[in-house]
Simulated scan of single mutants.
Amino acid sequence: MDSATTQKTVEQRIDDLLVGAIDPHVHSGPSIAARSVDHLELARDASAAGFAAIVTKDHDYSGVMTAALISRHHPELTTKIYSGIALNNVVGGLNPYAVEHTAAMGGKIVWLPTLAAENHFEWEKTSGWVHPASTQKIRPASAIPVLDANKAVRDDVKEILDVIARTDLTLASGHVHASETWIIFEEAKKRGVKRMIFTHPEDIVGASLEDVRGIAAMGAAVEHSLCMFLEGNKFQTCAPEDLRKHIDAAGIDSTILCSDLGQIGNIHPIEGIRRGIKLCMDLGYSDDDIRKMVSLNAARTLGIEASLPASASR
Rank of each mutant, 00 (worst) to 15 (best):
R195D: 01
H27A: 08
A52L: 02
L42Q: 03
R291W: 07
R291C: 08
G276I: 00
R154F: 05
S47W: 05
G107F: 00
D248K: 09
I81T: 07
D2V: 10
K158N: 09
A33I: 10
V130K: 11
M293Y: 06
L17V: 04
V146E: 01
S173K: 04
L209Q: 03
G174M: 01
K158S: 08
H73A: 12
V99M: 03
S3H: 13
T170A: 06
K8V: 13
A310E: 12
E159G: 10
D148M: 06
L161F: 03
A188N: 00
V37S: 03
S3F: 14
L209M: 04
W182M: 11
A207V: 02
K292A: 10
D282Y: 08
S134A: 11
R154A: 04
L42K: 05
E305H: 10
G128E: 04
H59I: 11
P201Y: 01
I81F: 04
R274M: 07
I32C: 14
G92R: 03
I277E: 02
C280G: 07
I270C: 01
E305R: 12
A152R: 11
S28H: 10
W129E: 09
N297M: 03
G174Y: 00
R13T: 11
S313R: 13
R139P: 14
R300M: 13
K8E: 15
V90N: 14
K8T: 14
I267L: 10
N233R: 09
S286T: 12
A141C: 12
M293F: 05
A250P: 08
A68W: 10
K158L: 05
A68Y: 09
T170S: 05
V205L: 08
H73Q: 14
P269C: 01
G192F: 04
A53M: 04
A299G: 02
T66D: 13
K292D: 11
T78M: 09
A312K: 08
K108E: 04
A312P: 08
C227D: 13
S259G: 03
D242E: 06
F235Y: 11
G214M: 07
M218G: 10
T255Y: 05
I273D: 05
